[in-house]
Nucleic acid binder design. Structure first.
Lengths: 384, 384
DNA sequence: ACATCGCGTCGAATCGATTCGACGAAGTGG
DNA sequence: CCACTTCGTCGAATCGATTCGACGCGATGT
């Protein structure tokens, strides 16, 4: 405190300030204040901070001391303006109001944590218009890279970031797998795995509860791939798998399940379904209640398996499930985004075409193989 | 598409750029490019954008045309550096890893939406060290204001923002209600209301399932206030209310509930509890399953009421509940934060002491009165 | 002994907006 | 008709960092 006062009174610069702008009062210290306090040039202080040139121990110590004494913290905007690095990652979470998804929050928090670990902050953009919000963030230079959630098979944002040569990585596997780096659970394999395990356990009739129809119509990647996997599993095992779309309203879901699970009487392999596979994230929590509401007992009447369950957030009783490795996916996608940003920045100077080319080359993927975890309930078919 | 292509090939800009700095390649247009294209001074373009001085219609038109032609978008960092406004709000969500809370995600998304509506972006900061992350954001000038979640009764962040004269608003009601603007559901009144309604419906023995012990130890505002309300309700109605802490593990929760709800045999008013009040956000989803696991039927054995339920995200069957008005709270807290930022900025120049004083004066609150919504289940006590 | 090199530091230019004083032109009142 | 305000615009300073060329100096090689 005393130190600060001394500085603001003593040297030429502050006197200059005082006279120039007496009305503004105390001001946060700048790099020049630090330099002056340490008796070095501002550039030297900068080098101490970002280590881009060698600094003697003595100078480093004096600068550090000045920083501590003044409580100096660099202004992000000034840093960014000059260096064109923001140290911010944008998380594009284009969820129309009312279409909440149980995984959004956990993903956002995990991405934020991962970003912090890499020295980045997270800008959360929840634009209705998926592409436009992202374009704005990129053009105004608010972030160095973007992490895209809720990825569609053909996602408009992919074109946007490629056109702008903006570093981005996806949580979700788009149709064009080489367009951008991405990470995802192998939903198709997960669904196929669950179907075949259930078939092996004796189930012949199953219901696959996919995400809502809206998600499918939007061609959301995980929804289509899950359904594809279920279909493939049915083909390869010979089991009958009815694909149904979830509804967000639990009462409606219970009604739909009743129809699907009890009143079903088509000319298939005969009996009613003995297994229910739930891929809809928002249904995980209350699926047991909905099933109960539909008049079915678990496991006596029905085996229930969940795909995409959040680790550590089990749906009441622990059902057999394929978990969504949120932390791994979030960590990796953040790493990919940061890597793309770093690479772009390092080679951007001096080569016009380097940026886009680089971004196109640097695509890495992480496709996580599904594992079927046991729950308290057996997989075995009731009648098997 | 065609338009865009034309722009990138045709106009003076690309030619000019090419010549000026051939090694750097194409560069995003700046305000000077726009000014040149429109035949005006850069400052005039700036005035067109932020309307701080009168501009003739003709000039406005020409500038707008140039902006469209060049696809100009102002750089946020330059704007911030000069004006010291970021148009960013920080959302401080200090959730230690593994302590996920079901309301965090929805709140974050609603605050983001509200911020966008007010012309702000949202920076999500999930620092472990509550105060330090916020201090860093404030000092580095990453945001104009902060919205604080997970508020404790005596929250360290309150001191930080006041010390730094940093605009902030809370989602949660701290002990010192006049320190900062805040919005909250009246948890105390909610709990008292539910207890008294249940008592009126004939219940004499109830269990109040409060948030986890960790939340209570941290003196989280909503947890303490909920418990206080339950206690008050018990006193005023004469009903026996046992306060219990939730555990995040559903199996453990079921076990605890079994003890609380069935094996309880103290010398109270006699019988076992007939009502369960659930305030723990993460238990809402699977409370029915946990109760069933504990061997109890609803509503035959037990009446369950939920406090702080997310609207539109019912816990399976629709229980009687007090909803948490996420959208209203998020919208209002964002408005408060922005108002504080605006006020501070407008009066900061010219008066040294104005900032802190202003922030202290401008505290507004929004305390939302609870409403007990009916569910499919009756409130009536089984034996009443 | 002299050219060379690397280390550590400085000074100045720069990033791209905002903002303020000034100024010509047009309008207004006495 | 002149003084005075208002309108619309310009030019230049400024925000606070980074970054690059240059430079002094001691060590090294021949």
């Amino acid at each position: 405190m005393q130190v600060r006062r001394r500085i603001y009174d003593g040297v030429c610069r502050s006197g200059l300030r005082r006279r120039a702008r007496i009305t503004e009062g105390s001001r946060l210290p700048t790099i020049r204040d630090v330099a002056q306090h340490a008796g070095v040039a501002p550039s030297t202080v900068s080098y101490v901070f970002n280590g881009s040139r060698p600094i003697s121990d003595e100078t480093r110590r004096r600068v550090q001391e000045a920083v501590d004494a003044l409580g100096y913290h660099p202004r992000a905007s000034a840093r960014t303006l000059r260096s064109s690095r923001t140290h911010v990652i944008a998380l594009a979470l284009p969820r129309p109001a009312g279409q909440r998804n149980a995984v959004d929050g956990p993903f956002a928090i995990e991405v934020s944590d991962a970003a912090v670990r890499l020295g980045y902050d997270l800008l959360l953009t929840t634009s209705q218009d998926k592409a436009e919000g992202l374009r704005r963030v990129a053009l105004s230079g608010l972030a160095d890279a973007a992490v895209l959630m809720a990825v569609d098979m053909e996602d408009a944002r992919i074109d946007v970031v490629r056109e702008l040569a903006f570093p981005a990585a996806l949580i979700g596997r788009p149709a064009d797998e080489d367009a951008l780096p991405w990470t995802d659970l192998d939903w198709e394999e997960a669904a196929a795995l669950v179907v075949s395990e259930l078939a092996a356990a004796g189930h012949r009739e199953m219901v696959y509860l996919a995400p809502t129809e809206a998600e499918v119509v939007a061609r959301r990647s995980y929804a289509l791939r899950g359904i594809a996997g279920a279909t493939r599993g049915a083909r390869s095992t010979g089991a009958a798998v009815t694909v149904a779309h979830a509804v967000d309203d639990p009462a409606g879901l219970a009604r739909r399940l009743r129809v699907l699970l009890t009143e079903r009487a088509d000319g298939g392999a005969g009996g009613r379904p003995t297994a229910l596979i739930v891929q809809h994230p928002s249904a995980h929590h209350h699926i047991l209640t909905s099933v109960t509401d539909a008049g079915l007992r678990i496991p006596e009447d029905l085996t229930v398996v969940v795909i995409g369950a959040l680790p550590g957030d089990p749906a009441g009783r622990r059902l057999p499930r394929v978990e969504l490795p949120v932390e791994t996916l979030a960590g990796e996608v953040t790493r990919l985004a940061v890597a793309a940003a770093t690479a772009l920045h390092e080679t951007a100077a001096g080569d016009v075409e380097a940026g886009p080319r680089l971004l196109a080359d640097a695509v890495g993927h992480l496709l996580i193989a599904p594992a079927l975890l046991p729950g308290d309930m057996p997989l075995t078919a009731p009648r098997a």
